[in-house]
Design a protein around this nucleic acid. Structure first.
Lengths: 219, 219
DNA sequence: ATATTTTGTTAGATTATTCTAACAAATTTG
DNA sequence: CAAATTTGTTAGAATAATCTAACAAAATAT
């Protein structure tokens, strides 16, 4: 039912409201690269369909129906990304743009078949959870590397930034999901961390990078 | 550049003008399920982009540029159909609807990767030729089964109708591409033919069916 | 608490794609 | 060939998604 445009608004609202549960018109407009009046009028349209709650000058809140619709689009996006990497040999930095288009395809069997072929994965190539068929998302309470302390060991489980630039940076440092890190030290003046992994005995990672690496710490 | 709507008009024009090299406004409108004024105005839009030639009350003719654009969309459609059947386990009767959506994706690498994974197929699951990257189509001068005569042997190479209904009919008779047929007889009053293939010693095929089966006759 | 800035809204216009109604040209038929 | 039918066109309107300009409310900063 929802047009591609509407689907993109739902996805943006879902992503923006991950923390607060709500999103402002200006954030929404920014996220989608449209003007505020455009975002404003589309929000009214979505509200009429029961997908979000909206009152003048108040933030936008997705309804349960809206959240589910958004999660199901994200499910298609993440399944597609995983399929492109696992079954078609793409790099994790190449798949977002393609998945951005494939996610709007209406063909349940297509995505079910992908899911099956991959053995029902629970996360995408960047470690983000894949919502289930009911639109439920399994939260992965992960910490960021910046929260770890020297002496700890951890494995990279996900990323909080999956931009092609950041992924290219990680590629250049041989960092990927599953990489095991030993935290050697942390500089107090710039929060940068020195870590060891694979062949690398001492690598320095800036605060920005550490914040974006989501880890599971070994007990 | 072209919108999905424009791409669908190009494809329809290409298919309609396979024989004559031209298509009428009413055929175009019919094919796409839109009104004649709608088709008329879109044709004017395509003409402004140099994709077709059009004069009032005359049939529409695709330009070389228009033909190439259409062929490249058809290339994506047919590669997708083949991928769905060969790599994802779909039946040949299930793939048209999905390919109809996937063909509009702008991601050259995605389709090149499919092509590579399949070993550069030249025909789709219904035997229709896949245009090359330059939009050139290799014509497969095939005959229809109705042109064959008793005593001849032939193999089914393609179909001139790939509707889900016809494909379901063929499935129910165990007929598929590659099936080898022996023509036993032909009824002169209704043009139906009796053939043998696989386990079947005598199967009768109506004229309608014979016309839709494209064959290569054994020398 | 007033002034300034940011955020949000309304109004009005634009482009793409579609429609119906009315009319006109072309084709087919008797 | 004239009448009837089919095909095609024009005009005018509707919906979706977008914009800019102008104004209004809310938030922030002096």
């Amino acid at each position: 039912m929802a047009s591609i445009t509407e689907e993109n608004y739902l996805k943006a609202l879902f992503n923006l409201s991950n923390n607060q549960g709500e999103a402002s018109i200006s954030d929404l407009a920014n996220q989608l690269g449209v003007s505020m009046p455009t975002a404003n009028s589309m929000v009214k349209t979505l509200q009429k369909q029961g997908l979000c709650k909206y009152e003048k000058y108040k933030p936008v809140i997705l309804t349960e129906q809206g959240k589910k619709a958004a999660a199901l689009i994200i499910r298609k996006h993440r399944l597609t990304e995983m399929f492109l990497v696992n079954k078609m040999g793409f790099g994790w930095e190449e798949v977002h743009e393609i998945a951005e288009q494939v996610e709007h395809i209406h063909a349940p069997k297509f995505f079910e078949r992908m899911d099956e072929m991959m053995g029902f994965p629970t996360v995408d190539p960047h470690g983000s959870p894949i919502p289930d068929k009911q639109g439920r998302i399994q939260e992965l309470h992960l910490k960021s590397l910046s929260e770890a302390v020297p002496g700890q060991e951890a494995v990279i489980a996900a990323l909080s930034d999956s931009s092609a630039e950041f992924l290219a940076y990680l590629n250049s440092r041989q960092l990927s999901l599953g990489t095991e890190l030993k935290i050697l030290s942390k500089e107090s003046f710039d929060q940068s961390m020195t870590v060891a992994y694979g062949e690398k005995e001492r690598e320095s990672l800036s605060q920005k990078v550490c914040e974006k690496l989501l880890i599971r710490i070994f007990d």
